[in-house]
Amino acid sequence: MPDREAARRLLTDALGADDVVLVKASRSYGLEQLAADLLATGDGPDGAAS
């Protein structure tokens, strides 16, 4: 992936409501923000899609 936004777009399109993702990497890549971005795309009370 060229950047976090590209990864977010790919994962948002590929993931379903019942999918689980483990985000594991160095903080220098900013993947904690990618995880937060993915949670924010959900519509449930905890950010998960319902």
Results as ranks from 00 to 15, higher is better:
Asp37Tyr: 01
Met1Pro: 05
Asp43Thr: 15
Ala25Leu: 04
Ala40Phe: 04
Asp3Gly: 13
Ala25Asn: 15
Tyr29Leu: 15
Thr12Phe: 01
Ala36Pro: 01
Met1Leu: 09
Ala36Gln: 14
Gly42Ala: 08
Thr41Cys: 12
Ser28Leu: 07
Gln33Asp: 14
Lys24Asn: 09
Glu5Phe: 03
Ala48Ser: 14
Arg9Trp: 01
Pro45Thr: 03
Ala49Gly: 11
Gln33Ser: 11
Ala35Val: 04
Asp13Val: 04
Asp18Lys: 06
Ala17Gln: 09
Leu22Asp: 02
Leu31Asp: 07
Tyr29Phe: 14
Val21Met: 00
Val20Leu: 05
Ala36Met: 11
Val23Gln: 01
Glu32Asp: 15
Ser50Lys: 11
Asp19Val: 01
Asp13Arg: 12
Asp37Lys: 00
Tyr29Cys: 09
Gly44Leu: 07
Asp37His: 04
Leu31Ala: 03
Arg27Gly: 09
Leu11Ser: 07
Ser26Ile: 00
Gly44Cys: 06
Ala35Cys: 10
Thr41Ile: 01
Leu31Gln: 07
Gly30Met: 04
Leu34His: 03
Glu5Arg: 11
Ser50Ala: 14
Ala40Gln: 13
Ala25Trp: 08
Thr12Asp: 13
Arg9Phe: 05
Ala25Thr: 14
Ala48Thr: 14
Glu32Met: 04
Leu38Asn: 08
Asp13Pro: 02
Leu10Asn: 02
Arg9Ile: 14
Thr41Trp: 00
Asp19Met: 00
Ala25Gly: 15
Asp46Cys: 10
Asp37Glu: 14
Ala14His: 07
Gly44His: 05
Gly42Val: 05
Asp18Glu: 15
Lys24Glu: 04
Met1His: 07
Tyr29Ala: 11
Asp43Tyr: 03
Leu31Lys: 00
Arg9Leu: 14
Asp3Asn: 15
Ala49Arg: 15
Lys24Arg: 06
Asp37Trp: 08
Ala36Ser: 14
Leu39Gln: 10
Thr12Gln: 12
Val20Glu: 04
Gln33Cys: 06
